[in-house]
Design a protein around this nucleic acid. Sequence first.
DNA 1: CGAGTGATTGTTAGG
DNA 2: CCTAACAATCACTCG
Length: 164
Amino acid sequence: MKAAKGKGAARKDTKEALKPVEDRKVGKRKVALKADKSSNRQAKKGKLAKKDPNKPKRPPSAFFVFLEEFRKTFKRDHPNVKAVSAVGKAGGEKWKSLSNAEKAPYEAKAAKRKSEYEKLMTAYNKKQESIADDGDEVSDRLRPEVNGQDDQESGEVYLLCILE
DNA sequence: CGAGTGATTGTTAGG
DNA sequence: CCTAACAATCACTCG
């Protein structure tokens, strides 16, 4: 299904005809490459992969939190660059440049994200159970108590404090 | 029209 | 313990 799987041939063709941006390198290597030797950990073998309605997406790591902000900056400085890879590389490089203290706030947010993720997982977990039990709508069950995080900000500040 | 890709690193979870 | 998938982003590309 990988649309651009045949990039090799496609690139050769479009190379001279099309050239929208300077770096539209649509053909290199990426995570898909890992799938090569993958033992099907997630197993898309077929029926095993059950799609969940509200599958909680994984929380963005500290790097992603930083990247989110970095993207804006990068685009402001380089409005011409429209390549995600460019931002990725630049962001990665910058990220390594950051000190622990600078990464601290991002890590703090990442930690917070993880907390919510765990809650989502709990709610998601329950929902799965509920569905199996009832098999009908169970919105009541899906109630992640995220409200109990009133002191989350304090936690962040505290984290920064101790890290600083 | 849509799903997929590229690139970065971190995190997560299963084997 | 280790490995690999997957998280956001956005223009682009093939089917």
